[in-house]
Amino acid sequence: MRLSPFIRENSQAIIAEWENFARSLVPAADGMTPLSLRNHISYILDFIANDIDTAQTDTEQTDKSRGKKPKTGMDSVAEIHAALRQAGGFNLDQMVSEYRALRASVTKLWGAQDFEPTRQSIVDLVRFNEAIDQATTESISYYSKKVEHSRDLFLAVLGHDLRNPIGAMMMSAELIAKIESLTERQKMFIAQVSLSGARAIGIIDQLVDVTRARLGSGMKVIREQMDMAFVCRQLVQEMRSLHPSRTFVIKSSGDTIGSWDRPRIGQVFSNLLGNAVQYGFTELPIDITVSGETDAVSLAIHNQGVPIPNDKIVGIFEAMVRGGAEGSGTTNLGLGLYITKEIVAAHGGSIKVSSSEKDGTTFTALFPRSIDAAAVGGDIVQSADNRPNR
């Protein structure tokens, strides 16, 4: 029997074989009814059987084997299946594994038949695999689009629905602060509202950056000619205003002019300086060094403080990881170093950290001076001298 009529006549057995596998995809499949698990599988089998029987040119065969068969105007059964699986909580790996299981179910049952392989059966098997590849590609593409749409909705909520009411709250606090009859205690409370609102906006900005980086959009950079040392002095001055009791020492050398994203570079300085302030000994200075090299400019921020534990250094640049001492009482979400890493990588640069009780902690970021210099791509480097920090 040829493969296409075999699929049509044995669809229930094939689906039952496949369903046993689908049920193992917990927790996504946990509690789903047989009908939910089987949705569109019979339609996919019909598509495959019809595709095997359809004549095609060599070019069409090549395109289909690469998952590039031209689309019709309507959503395919594979795309509908992807939408249902995404809505049902199946992740991408689980959905792809369904197609692997379907492929295995068909070939297992067909191969169990008592027949001698012929040239036609080999052609049918090739056509079957091409159809599975095409359906898998369509499902992956559609699933990815659904995830991207969900991401855009999430960013819209953060960027608009939360930012606007927080902005209104901060504006109200500023207006109330202008009332002359307020007591000192009332002024303190209003100032706290403004400060908390500003912090909430900062957290939203961080989460938006992290979401874009982790869901595939990447950290966008808009390059312009700028002086790294000048931006350094600006950010250090702001940090001095926030922490007047701390000492900051700036050293710059060489040509520090290049093509970078000024606001993003400001984020790097702000995150690394804030990190040094938070974990450095208060009575010792924080040293900032900007050095112009041949094709790049390096930034090093050093502080003396308790070294980072060895078990923290490996994931120091990951999101939601904090390297400070336990019980420090900080409400830091642990996003600063992750965002810093993404900004540096987006510029084609590298970042590393070294820390020890003797030498203190130093974060060093290297930024290629131009797009051409960064074309080779950047990487993230983590190093430790004796014991690492933060």
Rank of each mutant, 00 (worst) to 15 (best):
N129W: 00
E79P: 00
K64E: 09
T118F: 04
K108A: 12
V106S: 05
K71M: 13
I48H: 01
V147Q: 13
V157C: 07
S121H: 11
F128S: 10
E130F: 03
D161C: 03
A82N: 04
E130Q: 11
Y143T: 00
E98V: 07
L84I: 03
R66T: 02
P165S: 10
T107G: 06
A49L: 02
L102H: 05
I132S: 01
Y142S: 14
R103H: 05
Q113P: 00
R127Y: 09
D53C: 05
F47Y: 12
Y142W: 13
G111R: 12
E60P: 04
H160V: 10
F154G: 12
T59Y: 05
S141V: 13
L162F: 13
S65T: 11
A156M: 11
S105N: 06
D63R: 07
E98T: 12
N164K: 11
A83Q: 15
D93V: 12
T118S: 15
K108I: 02
R100Y: 01
N129V: 00
T107L: 13
Y143I: 04
E79L: 03
G111L: 10
S121M: 04
T137F: 07
M74K: 15
D114T: 06
E98K: 03
G89N: 11
A112C: 02
H160M: 06
I132G: 02
A135W: 00
D133N: 14
S97F: 09
G88C: 09
L109V: 06
T57V: 09
D114Y: 05
T107W: 02
S144T: 07
V106L: 03
S144E: 04
G88M: 10
A78S: 09
E98F: 03
V96S: 00
S141T: 15
E116S: 08
T62D: 08
D161G: 00
M74W: 05
D46C: 04
E98L: 10
Q86L: 09
N91A: 04
A104C: 01
A83W: 04
G88R: 13
T62L: 08
L45D: 08
G89W: 14
Y143E: 06
D161R: 05
H160L: 09
L45P: 08
F90E: 08
K64T: 10
S105F: 02
E138R: 14
S121Y: 04
N164I: 15
I52P: 10
M95S: 13
R127N: 09
R127H: 06
R66S: 05
Y99W: 13
Y142R: 15
M95A: 05
R119T: 13
H149I: 06
F47C: 01
Q56W: 01
D63N: 05
K68E: 15
R85N: 14
I122L: 12
H81W: 13
A49W: 02
S150Y: 00
L45Y: 07
L102A: 04
S141Q: 15
S97I: 07
N50F: 03
